[in-house]
Structures are given as structure tokens and as C-alpha cells.
């Protein structure tokens, strides 16, 4: 509910006002606390949602875990803070969370005026529309006059307005912050259409819909949504660690290293693999973390392909294709910068 985001924004104000200026302190704070505080979403299956035991799971969650491994050596040393789309930025700005891994699209405004930096993209996505099958709609171009459910404070609501303007169509938005409320508004028929990132639609349809068969996702993808972990300006060392933790999962997949074959890889003669797993030291020192950091990430969290398949891949209810999220060597966009 939005009172919270007012509070969060108020907290941002209070912190900005009260804390004397300090730079590069996120990393120190994480180490001192012995815990990473990671802002995640409210509950999107496959990305971040608590399981039956109450443990957070998902693709976004796994990147929080990877960063915790790099800094603290232990994937379980994370405290998850559930945020609505509107609360997430004040929470990050105010220091309530160390980073966001929360289906957050990297954009120019967020990178600049919001004062954030984005790690490499962990999921290439795009915005889509879902409608009840019984409406008989086949294309987004037929949505003139529709009522559309959308969350505030997102790129989604901006793209939605842009799309209808460009198509010269009318629509009526229903805008609610809490994801449970906006979902039940859609499922009760208050809206004709639900719009969010295509991955979020797949998750909503497969896991939250009372009957997945009753809903269709329209073919049009109306935007680019490169979802990436987010940190605030002012701590470059921490930003570097987050960036390279993401790359580590991709690099491992490129090198053919997975949590299954990791132990054999320790004996590899390939210089790139020896550098990656820390047999040849240097990378860890350069980042200011343990030389085994990348080895530990793969051991505790897995490589990018394993993370993808475990959370959103073919064997999960979401059944997503790798598509753009495949390695560049296989026609996708995932590409790690060199580990040297």
C-alpha cells in the first residue's frame, strides 16, 4: 500500500537529511553486518517469491545470493526486503537496502536523475498484454477502449500510455500499487487487460491464475525491458562486485563450468578456467574479495543456464525459452566481459 512508499520516500528524505556525507560505505556496511540486504519484488513466481518453507526463491533472488557469496562467502547471508514497484527506489536511495534485484528495467532516467547504476542485464524482457480468452481478442491492436490494470511507478505504465498514443487508441487505466490488489482487480474482471513484463505475465498466468487456460498473452511485445540488478551511486567497489558476480554466472556457462562439474574444473589446464576458479589468483584480489569468489558462486548458486532453467525454464511452470537470454554463442544476448 502506498502509505508505505510515502514512508519510504520520507525515510529517503530523512536519511539524506541526517546522515553526514560518506562515500564507498555500502561494501563496508555489508561486511560489518555480515549480511546483504537485497530489495526484491512482492511475489512473482520464478523471480522472487517465498516457498512453502518461507525461503525466498527465484532468478532475482539467485543474483542476491551470488553477490552475498562474492562478499561474504555464503549464499544464505541475505536479508530480503519485499518492495512494491513504487517503494523500491526510495528504499535503495535511502540505504534501507544495499541493492535491488527486482525485475527492474535499466533506463536512462534511473541511471542518471535517480542516481543508480545498473549491473549487467540478468533477464532480457519486453512488455506484453494478457487478456481473458473469452474476450476473443487476438492482437493488442484490438484493445481500443479497453480498461487496463497496471502498477504505478513502473516503465510499464509509461510504455502503456506511449503505445496507445502511438496507435491512436483510447484506454482506461486502473492503477494499484499492491500486486495482490491489482491482480485480483484483473481476475475479477475490473480490467479487460493486464500488462507487465512478458516474464511477469507468464508467471501470473501459470502460477496465479485460477485457471491458466482462461487467459491468453497477446503476441505484441511493445517495449524493451532489460531487467538488471541496481545499486546506488557512490560506492564503485560494491558496484564492481555486483557487476562481476552477474558476469561470473555467464562466464561460467560460456566456459562450460557448472555446479555439477566444478570439482573437475579445478584440475583443468585451460588458463581461462584456472583464472576463473581461482587456481591462478588475481581476479579476487583485484575485486577486493576472496580468490575463490567465482568458484563459490558457481558452487552455491550455479551458472546462468542453471539459474535460468531452475527458476523459469522448461522444467518450471513458467516454461520460458532461453531466447534473448541464451549465450551470444547460441544466438542470445548474454555475453560476459573477459575475466582477466
Amino acid at each position: 500500500m502506498n502509505k508505505l512508499s510515502v514512508l519510504a520516500a520520507g525515510a529517503a528524505l530523512a536519511v539524506a537529511a541526517a546522515a553526514p556525507a560518506q562515500a564507498g560505505k555500502t561494501l563496508d556496511a555489508v561486511k560489518q553486518r555480515g549480511q546483504l540486504i537485497c530489495g526484491v519484488s512482492q511475489g512473482t513466481a520464478g523471480f522472487s517469491r517465498p516457498n512453502n518453507q518461507g525461503a525466498w526463491e527465484g532468478l532475482d533472488v539467485d543474483f542476491c545470493r551470488a553477490v552475498a557469496v562474492a562478499i561474504l562467502g555464503d549464499a544464505s547471508k541475505v536479508r530480503y526486503v519485499s518492495t512494491t514497484a513504487a517503494q523500491r527506489f526510495p528504499a535503495l536511495q535511502s540505504g534501507e537496502v544495499d541493492m535491488l534485484s527486482r525485475t527492474t528495467t535499466a533506463t536512462l532516467t534511473r541511471d542518471t536523475v535517480n542516481g543508480f547504476n545498473f549491473a549487467p542485464v540478468t533477464f532480457y524482457d519486453g512488455q506484453g498484454f494478457m487478456v481473458p480468452k473469452k474476450l476473443g481478442v487476438k492482437s493488442a491492436k484490438e484493445l481500443n477502449g479497453a480498461t487496463v490494470c497496471v502498477s504505478p511507478g513502473t516503465t510499464t505504465e509509461l510504455n502503456l500510455a506511449d503505445y496507445f498514443r502511438a496507435q491512436k487508441m483510447q484506454f482506461k487505466p486502473v492503477v494499484i500499487e499492491k500486486v495482490d490488489e491489482i491482480r485480483s482487480a484483473y481476475f475479477s474482471g475490473r480490467c479487460d487487460v493486464y500488462t507487465t513484463d512478458a516474464s511477469g505475465l507468464a508467471s501470473l498466468r501459470a502460477v496465479d491464475a485460477p485457471n491458466p487456460e482462461d487467459h491468453v498473452i497477446l503476441p505484441e511485445i511493445i517495449s524493451k525491458e532489460p531487467l538488471a540488478p541496481t545499486v546506488r551511486h557512490g560506492d564503485e567497489e560494491f558496484a564492481d562486485i555486483v557487476r562481476w558476480s552477474v558476469y561470473a554466472t555467464i562466464e561460467a556457462e560460456e566456459l562450460g563450468i557448472s555446479s555439477k562439474n566444478l570439482e573437475q574444473m579445478l584440475k583443468s589446464e585451460d588458463p581461462a578456467i584456472k583464472r576463473f576458479v581461482g587456481v591462478t589468483p588475481g581476479n579476487g584480489k583485484a575485486l577486493g574479495v576472496d580468490e575463490k569468489w567465482a568458484y563459490n558462486i558457481i558452487k552455491q548458486v550455479g551458472n546462468y543456464g542453471e539459474i535460468f532453467e531452475r527458476n523459469v525454464g522448461k522444467g518450471t511452470p513458467l516454461k520460458l525459452e532461453r531466447g534473448l537470454n541464451d549465450l551470444w554463442t547460441r544466438g542470445g544476448l548474454q555475453y560476459a566481459q573477459p575475466f582477466r
Partner: peptide
Amino acid sequence: NTAINQTGQ
């Protein structure tokens, strides 16, 4: 709130 989010102000 929406304005705060979209502008960062």
C-alpha cells in the same frame, strides 16, 4: 508518488 518514482525527486 507516481511522479516521485518516475522522476526520482
